[in-house]
């Protein structure tokens, strides 16, 4: 079996923050022991609310941030502590598409220039050849060659996101990390962009790491889904398993909370959890979810559960598999 495209083991990322000059330095626990693999050609969704660490994870996978601890492997080779020069030729293996297409394209340069950048950095094509290739790439994402002359501000959000995808595609990556790629787009445009990403995955065998807060979407497109909460993976399962029913109370709640277009009469859509996500500075002791969990018992606040195999998936909960979700109004997702 070939090595996975990307593999992280026990990844930790802590940021020191200081609110004021006289206050003690505090630590933001952005990632605390995250392990996962990205297999060739698969769609892995990483789901969670703000502050769960999903964007930090994306940046660590790309080595845009240096992790505090743990290992990142690209095609089996450890890249955790490579310097910028050693990293440069490896950059083409993993690319990223960001959420906000208004911020991810430099407004000063034409689409032609933006498309030429990756080709200039990673291929030996001449200027003229780069232009031809740029037009080909735009064609792949469904944009005509006339876009080469345009500037980002002349494009709609969906068109910009296509350009961003074409730009990532230019270096022929093995994986594209999509950080909320459609949440800034209109519903009618979202499907276009998702379909484009899915087509690229099929045609070029590119693995997609799909970072999102939108469970209703992720359920439909992912092969595997990882749910994150406060810097940890709380559940990792294949999409079919998640559709049948999540095993961790948090993932369960997250699925229940997503407003559905066709609510079941009599079933409240409200998440059976209250309150807000706690601050990643000083996360709760024991199980990080125990402050909002309806099933929390005394030992949940004391001992931190580890990610363990339950019914063909990984769940970080002491009582996974024993919980009676029927007690919840919104239990069915």
């Amino acid at each position: 079996m070939t090595a996975p495209v990307l593999e992280v083991v026990d990844l930790v990322k802590h940021y020191p923050v200081r609110r004021g000059p006289f206050e003690p330095r505090k630590i933001v626990h952005a990632l605390d022991g995250v392990s996962l693999t990205v297999r060739r050609g698969e769609t892995l969704a990483i789901v969670g609310e703000s502050g769960c660490g999903k964007s930090t994870l994306a940046r660590c996978l790309l080595r845009l941030e240096d992790p505090t601890g743990g290992t990142i492997r690209l095609h089996g080779a450890d890249i955790t502590s490579l310097d910028a020069d050693a990293m440069r030729p490896l950059r083409r293996h993993v690319q990223i598409v960001f959420q906000d297409p208004y911020a991810s394209l430099n407004p000063r340069w034409s689409i032609g220039t933006l498309m030429a950048d990756p080709l200039r950095l990673h291929t030996k094509l001449s200027r003229a050849e780069r232009r031809v290739r740029a037009a080909e790439l735009l064609a792949i994402v469904g944009l005509g060659g006339e876009f080469l002359e345009r500037y980002p501000h002349e494009l709609s959000g969906g068109q910009r996101q296509r350009v961003a995808i074409a730009r990532a595609l230019a270096v022929e990556p093995d994986a594209i990390i999509c950080d909320e790629p459609v949440s800034a787009l209109d519903v009618s445009i979202q499907a276009q962009v998702i379909n484009l990403l899915m087509r690229l995955r099929r045609e070029f065998g590119i693995a997609l790491v799909f970072i999102s807060h939108d469970l209703s979407l992720v359920k439909h497109i992912a092969d595997r889904i990882a749910v994150m909460y406060l810097g940890q993976i709380v559940e990792l399962a294949d999409a079919a398993g998640m559709r049948e029913g999540a095993k961790h109370p948090y993932s369960r709640a997250l699925f229940a909370a997503a407003p559905t277009v066709d609510p079941v009469p009599g079933v409240s859509c409200e998440a059976p959890i209250g309150g807000d996500v706690p601050s990643p500075i000083d996360p709760p002791s024991g199980c990080r979810f125990h402050t909002r969990c309806a099933f929390a018992k005394d030992d949940c606040a004391l001992t931190a559960p580890s990610l363990r195999a339950v019914e063909g998936r990984s769940v970080r909960c002491h009582y996974a598999g024993e919980l009676d979700f029927a007690r919840w109004a919104g239990g069915s997702s």
Binding site: D186, S188, A191, Q192, N195, R199, S216, H220
Partner: peptide, 24 residues
């Protein structure tokens, strides 16, 4: 109709997500 179909993440015949073509 299209908006609701897109919001329901309905599938087109070829298995892709149902989309409204073009832009506003």
């Amino acid at each position: 109709q299209g908006l609701l179909r897109a919001a329901r993440r309905a599938r087109a015949d070829d298995g892709t997500l149902w989309e409204i073509r073009g832009t506003v």
